[in-house]
């Protein structure tokens, strides 16, 4: 009995050791750039992986960390200090066959981009597949163009954007998209397009004054959460009778629009132009 327990423990130790040894084959790229100017353009063209974009501890420094296996991935980090442009490129061979398997060495790929708080940032992402987490609160996001083919993505503004956002364009093709605290983004006009899958858009936040968003939904389940202190107006274009929409009693229909109970009394306004596809749209008031 004792020997068998020891055998099992030995095998486990070997397995872990093997895994740890294997991870020694990974390559790591890590760069820190001090941003001298007032603006920063970030282009993240990343085929696959676990990608985290967030705020750096240093307000004037940008930190990029990539851990990958070189068998199928080619990575590059470029910073042009003349025009303050940062390019993070991950080119993955045959990315459609990438699997989100952390134990598969060939598929392992982690990217961390930490952005400084001082410069105004134009953030352009072109993601193909993977898990993407963007914690964009307390930064100066001037433009956000987020494009994602497949996977899971979470965009969160846990704290108010430090400046008014000029443009926000989110395109998500297939998978699960979770956008939290969008009211902190300080956007005035946004486009959110979702292809196939599940999407949650939460407009909570303290900084929403007057904003409009176009939401174009194709196939899947969508939940929109609206804070109850915002006067909200909805215009919903349905795709024939294939969309199922549930409105809370908080809304009253007048003409072609739905108005929240507090629309006339509120000093903060949100206007959502929603085009629904096939599936369920649920609108909730928080």
């Amino acid at each position: 009995m004792k020997s068998s327990v020891l055998l099992v423990m030995g095998m486990i130790i070997l397995l872990f050791a093997g895994a740890l040894l294997a991870r020694d084959n990974y390559l790591v790229m890590e760069e820190n750039y001090t941003i001298a100017g007032n603006t920063l353009l970030v282009n993240a063209n990343i085929d696959v992986g676990e990608v985290v974009i967030g705020k750096n501890n240093r307000d004037d420094q940008c930190h990029v960390y990539i851990k990958y296996t070189p068998e199928r991935a080619e990575c590059d980090i470029r910073y042009n200090e003349n025009n303050n442009e940062l390019d993070v490129i991950v080119d993955f061979e045959n990315w459609k066959k990438w699997r989100d398997d952390k134990d598969n060495d060939e598929d392992f790929l982690q990217v961390l981009i930490e952005l400084p708080a001082n410069p105004e940032i134009d953030l352009n992402t072109d993601f193909k597949a993977g898990e993407f987490e963007l914690e964009l609160g307390d930064l100066k996001i001037h433009n956000l163009n987020f494009s994602n083919w497949a996977g899971e993505a979470r965009i969160n503004f846990h704290a108010p954007n430090r400046i008014k956002m000029n443009e926000m364009d989110i395109n998500f093709k297939v998978g699960e998209l979770d956008i939290q605290n969008l009211g902190n983004a300080r956007f005035e006009e946004a486009d959110i397009n979702s292809g196939i899958g599940e999407m949650t858009v939460d407009f909570s936040g303290e900084s929403l004054e007057k904003a409009m968003a176009r939401l174009d939904l194709d196939i899947g389940e969508t939940t929109i959460i609206i804070p109850n202190h915002i006067g909200t107006k909805l215009r919903v274009s349905k795709f024939l009778f294939l969309s199922e929409i549930s409105y809370p009693n908080w809304f009253d229909k007048r003409g072609s629009y739905y108005y929240s109970d507090n629309y006339e009394n509120s000093s903060k306004f949100l206007y959502l132009m929603i085009s629904t596809g096939i599936g369920e749209l649920s609108i909730k008031v928080d």
Binding site: L240, F241, K253, S256
Partner: peptide, 10 residues
């Protein structure tokens, strides 16, 4: 089309 019932919604 301003109603909320089945195909009449469209």
């Amino acid at each position: 089309s301003s109603s909320d019932w089945f195909f009449l919604d469209d």
